[in-house]
């Protein structure tokens, strides 16, 4: 199939076939990361701007490495260095970048919907959402799905428990949409202050306790917990959180013996996940990071390797270009 999406704004916009294609493409790119020469010329001459309005080490680095391994020129712009501090609007910042003819803008922003907003306004660039507010984080969900599929051979029919701050997690939304779309059965658990209304409508089963969520799970995904959100405390203490929602060897035993333990990072060891579990044999946390590069290569390739200009496509067809 042809991948026809110009932007990657969220998992919500991707069909099952498109998710499959991304995961398959990523699997093929993964091999490059193990070569001595970790670079292919695929996106030679393409310019990718990593526009990060929110601090991020992992995601930004992952996208940067992905772009560089595909021979694209990647430029990082972080919020502190950007014009935002000068009071420039998001649209102006983006239009100014667009004027320099990048091919892809990888964007992280604290406002939900910010990449959608730019996608409507930028005429040329493709936009890849690297996390918008508490909305979506599609590349994270894709790397999670890739990791699960690698270890389990499938997504369909798996029981996936996601535990933590469901309300404020963009990782949860993207995973929930993606995993249920791919046929997995997703349960969520967390303190009442962190379960948003209507999460069931996105396909989640809400569990009342961690143990209930872990029971028979094939995959356990723990989320980073933060005591303060928007200046308000949603938890009494991290100690209590850890006691009721922290993953440790004894409650992990409720899950299937070969259950995968995942975490999108960065981890609070000893809070949402004990060190012995994080570093234990069931942990695939570093696989997630490794697959992140491959998934991002796939996204950059599928979005950047395409030309969305109709006239070019037609003229190349009439010339009968083949491999």
């Amino acid at each position: 199939m042809d991948f026809t999406q110009k932007h990657i704004l969220g998992i919500d916009h991707l069909s099952v076939a498109e998710i499959d294609l991304i995961l398959n493409t990523a699997a093929n790119f993964k091999e490059i990361n193990n070569r001595d020469i970790k670079k292919v010329p695929t996106l030679r001459g393409k310019t990718i701007i990593n526009l990060f309005f929110e601090a991020s080490t992992r995601t930004r680095t992952s996208f940067e490495i992905a772009g560089k391994r595909l021979s694209a020129d990647t430029i990082n712009i972080s919020a502190s260095a950007s014009s935002v501090v000068k009071g420039e609007t998001l649209e102006d910042t983006a239009m100014n970048l667009e004027a320099m003819h990048p091919d892809i803008i990888v964007m992280r922003h604290s406002a939900s919907g910010a990449p959608h907003y730019l996608a409507k306004r930028l005429p040329r660039s493709s936009i890849i959402n690297a996390g918008d507010g508490t909305h979506e984080h599609p590349s994270q969900a894709l790397l999670d799905m890739m990791t699960i599929r690698e270890h389990k051979g499938r997504l369909d029919g798996l029981k996936v428990a996601i535990v933590g701050d469901i309300t404020h997690s963009r990782v949860v939304r993207s995973n929930l949409i993606g995993l249920t779309r791919m046929g997995a059965d997703v349960r969520v658990a967390g303190p009442g202050t962190m379960i948003p209304p209507g999460i069931e409508r996105l396909g989640a089963t809400v569990c009342r306790s961690l143990n209930e969520a872990l029971e028979g799970a094939d995959v356990v995904m723990m989320l980073r917990i933060q005591l303060e959100r928007q200046g308000k405390s949603l938890l009494p203490t991290l100690r209590e959180y850890s006691r009721f929602f922290g993953l440790n060897p004894s409650n992990l035993a409720l899950a299937k013996p070969d259950a995968l333990v995942m975490h999108p990072g960065p981890m609070n060891r000893g809070v949402e996940i004990s060190t012995s579990v994080a570093d234990g044999p069931q942990s695939v946390i570093l696989d997630q990071v490794e697959n992140g590069v491959a998934v991002r290569m796939a996204l950059l390739y599928l979005v950047g390797g395409a030309n969305n200009d109709e006239s070019t496509i037609q003229s190349s067809q009439s010339k009968g270009v083949t491999a």
Partner: peptide
């Protein structure tokens, strides 16, 4: 990954 016609048609 090494094709010279990437960007001319869909990936």
């Amino acid at each position: 990954m090494y094709r010279d016609d990437l960007g001319i048609r869909s990936a």
